[in-house]
Design a protein around this nucleic acid. Structure first.
Lengths: 168, 168
DNA sequence: TTAAACTTTCAAAACTTTTTGAAAGTTTAA
DNA sequence: TTAAACTTTCAAAAAGTTTTGAAAGTTTAA
């Protein structure tokens, strides 16, 4: 396979994976493009490369900055804004985990906490089934939450070599 | 909060969480309903409880069976099919991890493997940036893949109490 | 067989999300 | 100031996803 074809394929795959994981296709594609780009790119270049509109490019770039995945850069003597992606994959994984935890897990944990406070007759199957499921899920969610929190502060090396040794 | 209200809230929240994680809202809601239901339910009962159509209920139930999250049950002397959810949260988490690994991670790993075979001039920044990103992501993806595989065969107790001790 | 009880299918409709692009806004250099 | 260069906004359009419901299919008991 030739480099240009491989680049297209990478952008396409990253876009597809993104959309399966709640990050929209364009956002993932812009991220992919910047990941394999040696130099920062302007909005114009991104628009052209991916054939997307100015509005879309602008919003997407803003979202990516919000996720902490890309940054703006200014070149001296130029008005244009350049964008580049953090190329450290461990940082990317951490950043995504951090954001999703904040956006999705935290609200659920809050509701589950409320729901596990509901009281009722332990002999009522409707109540006891509800109660058991909610409590179990709550425990699971809390565990996932703590695990992510620990990962976020963990050293990179743990990830690259360490975790596998822990399970065995 | 009263039980009926809490049930509604649980179903609603599970639905929302599902849609953020690539499982459609109705599918997650049907799953939630069966999770808190002490007895198996018929298609009819599910339709009524969630105000969804017969076609939707049928497809959703089939998908949930495909994900290994619910099962059919036949009551002796009755024609109707009853559905019930596996209530073991560890099984649910495992099942979801297993399916998503198969459906999403595996295809990406396959493409990344291909893309890391691309060769080029190491002095060409376009090539070396591409190559580094692809290889790093490939390593990460393989690591995640192996970690999930190990989790899938791990004991339940590891999850509930063990993982946290491993990080520290 | 037949017909009632039940399940499955799928094209069209409803709904949701994403994208567009033109207009408005902002910044900078002269 | 002004106007060129650039960025942001947002209503409407397009694209994508989910749901409906009527019709077709299947199974079972008699």
């Amino acid at each position: 396979m030739e480099l240009e074809e491989a680049k297209r394929k990478f952008i396409e795959s990253w876009g597809k994976l993104g959309s399966e994981w709640g990050i929209n296709r364009t956002m993932a594609q812009v991220h992919a493009l910047l990941l394999i780009s040696p130099d920062p790119l302007t909005t114009e270049e991104i628009m052209e490369n991916l054939s997307i509109s100015r509005g879309n490019a602008n919003m997407t770039l803003r979202d990516l900055i919000g996720w902490g995945l890309i940054e703006k850069q200014h070149k001296p003597g130029e008005r244009k804004e350049y964008f580049f992606a953090d190329k450290d994959v461990w940082n990317i994984a951490r950043q995504v985990a951090k954001e999703r935890r904040k956006r999705e897990l935290e609200p659920v944990v809050k509701i589950l906490d409320e729901l596990s406070k509901v009281t009722g007759d332990p002999n009522d199957p409707a109540f006891s089934t509800f109660n058991k499921s909610v409590n179990d899920i709550n425990k699971l969610a809390k565990n996932v939450d703590k695990t992510i929190e620990t990962m976020l502060t963990a050293e990179e090396s743990w990830f690259w070599g360490g975790i596998l040794k822990l399970f065995k």
